[in-house]
Design a protein around this nucleic acid. Sequence first.
DNA 1: CTGAAAATGTATCAGATGTTACAAAATGAT
DNA 2: ATCATTTTGTAACATCTGATACATTTTCAG
Lengths: 225, 225
Amino acid sequence: MINYKLLTNCPIFKGINEIELKSLINQIHYQVRIHKKNDVVAIAGDPVKNLYIILSGSVKGEMIDYSGKTIKIEDIDAPRPLATAFLFGKENTFPVTVTASNDVEILSIPVGEFLNLLQKNKHILKNYINNISSRSQFLSRKLQFLSFKTIKGKMAHYLLQQAGTHLHSVELNTTQQQLAELFGVTRPSLARVLAEMQDEKLITIERKTVRLLDKGELGKIIHHG
Amino acid sequence: MINYKLLTNCPIFKGINEIELKSLINQIHYQVRIHKKNDVVAIAGDPVKNLYIILSGSVKGEMIDYSGKTIKIEDIDAPRPLATAFLFGKENTFPVTVTASNDVEILSIPVGEFLNLLQKNKHILKNYINNISSRSQFLSRKLQFLSFKTIKGKMAHYLLQQAGTHLHSVELNTTQQQLAELFGVTRPSLARVLAEMQDEKLITIERKTVRLLDKGELGKIIHHG
DNA sequence: CTGAAAATGTATCAGATGTTACAAAATGAT
DNA sequence: ATCATTTTGTAACATCTGATACATTTTCAG
């Protein structure tokens, strides 16, 4: 039995009331699948032919590296949808292996049926498109950040972003170690770069306060180290 | 005047014939905007409130290329759409500044009208969703590669992924240059690593065929160079 | 088949970052 | 205030990658 009230909280069905949703769902074909704790729901590489929405319980996405170790990527719990970005497009396969963290019920709507839903209801259409668009934008920003090759570039970008347009100083509320991890570099390397940036009169650091001495020059650095 | 025949080649309108398309377009509100060469069409940060499709001419966007390094000029010419990933979602702003490479005509469809189109025509709906989904998948894949620190790690991951569980050889249907761009590294660096991996008896390369000699060892390499 | 263009192999050098190690300084609990 | 712990500064060296250049091989159109 589907808990429609819970389902109205699913991002895909936002803005639709319980009665309306029930009527919509009953117009289409769907299945509800039940998996026990630790069952494998989908294996990385499996084709994605349905929209999956967690009705109860939660699942986790894991990548299995080639040494056999599993690395957890993310947890998804009710009433969130699964792999929405892989239902369409060129590569309709699960990017990760999905296993049940505990007993789960999963609503499974075939892609063709879901397309009908999208055409029938403008809320669902907008929600779904917003969902995958936001994901795309998120990835785009993340990629932009990683695309700064040098530590100096990452640091310049970080400082300018923190400072915004007006401020000329930034309070670091993290240790160098944490910042180094955010950038994916080692702590001594980050410290060295910070020292260099001070030598070059780009910034001064006092305790946790970083003063930006030359925002223009910092901006230039971003893209070429 | 809109060249509908050309417009049927737009990815968004694929699968729709000229007559049908003309009828669809005439059911909605739209504008055709004309820009002279070197005019600024949109500034990075401007809100995206319309779907823009180049009808004639071409525009260029300054953006950070996904393979990594610096600012690169992306050209978009007729009849391709513009900034499709930013029409919906949380951040509806141009990610780049767009300028006219030569005199251009741009079809401009308000987002509300475009939503109507999506609901009216299943081809357009599928095309558009496929378009943004593919983009999302592309970005996702890029990010995955960037998460491996060394080129050898990226290459090992790529080969094992291509080969899957059973195969012991992989056909490269890309050039080294394309592969290097996918990894965000330079072509000579990639070639050097490939040579090293052959020296180390991990793989052999003959033409476009790569034989994986030691999948276990390749797996170990992934996460520590 | 042939010649131009594209793709690949290789080398050298410079620069950026990781690794490791240790000392100095700051922090925080008592 | 004091001492243990955490954080930061710095150094020497190894390694990886980028940049650049050029020769060689492969591909493909004519």
